[in-house]
Design a protein around this nucleic acid. Structure first.
Lengths: 244, 244
DNA sequence: TCAACTGATACTTTCGATATTATCATATAT
DNA sequence: ATATATGATAATATCGAAAGTATCAGTTGA
């Protein structure tokens, strides 16, 4: 009984991957910041080789960029890219809503109601000032939107949607956006339109939902102003040592 | 003058990445095949560490799967996934055509005509029996479709389209499909509809183009039959679970 | 004073080796 | 005979160090 092959096969690399990915999405690793390997490997408790595997994966996902042989850095952000990602999310999610509404059964409906119940509770908490952690809220928001499109019947689409959602989420988190009652109302509408199988109505609400979120973020964030000149937080003291 | 920073910065890892990726797309590495690290590192002339970086990237792109701590293998294929990828490609490309047709200028038109000229010549060669290499033809096909959507104005969409196109291409290559005059005619139509900015017509042709290609491939390929039982060359005994 | 050269330093890339884990064949008990 | 335990073998995951580049301070020459 001591050798269970696939119970908790959490490799060191996977652990580092999840943690770094989270830190990227939630802005703990700042856009444009250089990701020095030695420092990083210390911070996340892996060797450099293992760390490089992780960073390569995150490169493919668009959270990290690798320029030539000058190492890795956190992918920069721009208002333009935010809008483009939002557009892609809307395109995917809209298409998936159409298919999902056509194919969803009772179980599907039940999962939507359930996911909305949790999301709604989380939104009430945030509105009443209780500072719950952003990560839980994000999780609920994703689960709700995922429930809407879950019956689309395509694993490829679901994977693509999840990937785009996380890139979108990164911008939301960097902009530190919570739109409050407005967003909560839109979620409520989406739930009801799903139960009514109203594709057209749902797509209109989705468009508003995403568009307003982008606009709100662009207006309220210092990071995403016109030409965001986002650089490293501060020039590292370097070696200097002119005294020598 | 001997230190030019960014002239030939082709790292060993990048070279291996491109070669392995090509071998995956063109079916030289067959679906389901185990990718043993030692053998691979020998074949592609890199160390195991560097190879692992590459395989991690290809995992994110959907060409390789990594199961737990049992190593890597070539992503399996299925008729279902082919159809889902085709659907995603059509969704993206259709949307991008609409934006591109609205925004394209004279340069855009010129590049379409140019790309179609090359693709058309390549198609004539293939039709007349000259066995040109598949990779060149693929390159021309991609360049043409890319030219159609190039003016969509979104880098995010262009990147997503390129990624999906390559996954689609892998299925085309495994099915070894060349639809001949039919596909060539559709390309000709797409070019003319682009110059006329006929979004509706172009999307209809695109739908036919992709749908017929999938159907043709599913019919003609041994690999993509109903429930493709594609396994490793030698049938492994495995655990004799419910062996019927 | 400015520009280009030179050497030193820090970083990245790559490798070979070790530790850990899965797999398979054999043996043993029911 | 089937199924479980056990040890040998092969493959993977991880690490630390060496080789290869970019970057920067200081220096030299105009």
């Amino acid at each position: 009984m001591d050798t269970l092959p696939d119970t908790t096969a959490e490799t060191v690399g996977d652990s580092a991957y999840r943690r770094i990915r989270t830190d990227l999405i939630f802005g703990k690793l700042v856009p444009g910041q250089k990701l020095k390997l030695e420092r990083m490997s210390g911070a996340y408790g892996t060797s450099i080789s293992t760390l490089r595997e992780t960073l390569n994966r995150l490169c493919s996902e668009g959270f990290v960029v690798a320029e030539g042989q000058r190492g890795f850095e956190v992918a920069p952000i721009s208002a333009t890219e935010f809008q483009e990602i939002a557009e892609l999310r809307e395109l995917l999610e809209g298409h998936m809503i159409e298919k999902s509404f056509a194919a969803g059964d009772l179980d599907w409906e039940a999962r939507i109601v359930s996911a909305h119940h949790k999301l709604s509770a989380m939104e009430r908490m945030l509105l009443s000032g209780e500072r719950s952690d952003a990560e839980s809220w994000k999780q609920c928001d994703f689960q709700f939107h995922r429930a809407l499109v879950a019956a689309c019947g395509s694993k490829v689409l679901l994977d693509a949607h999840a990937a785009v959602y996380d890139r979108y989420l990164r911008y939301q988190m960097i902009a530190v956006v919570f739109r409050g009652e407005m967003a909560a109302a839109e979620h409520r509408e989406l739930k009801e339109l799903a139960l009514k199988r109203d594709v057209k109505g749902a797509n209109e609400v989705l468009h508003t939902h995403i568009h307003d979120c982008v606009t709100h973020a662009l207006r309220n964030s210092d990071w995403l102003k016109p030409v965001a000149a986002v650089k490293e937080p501060r020039a590292e003291p370097r070696k200097k040592a002119k005294a020598g």
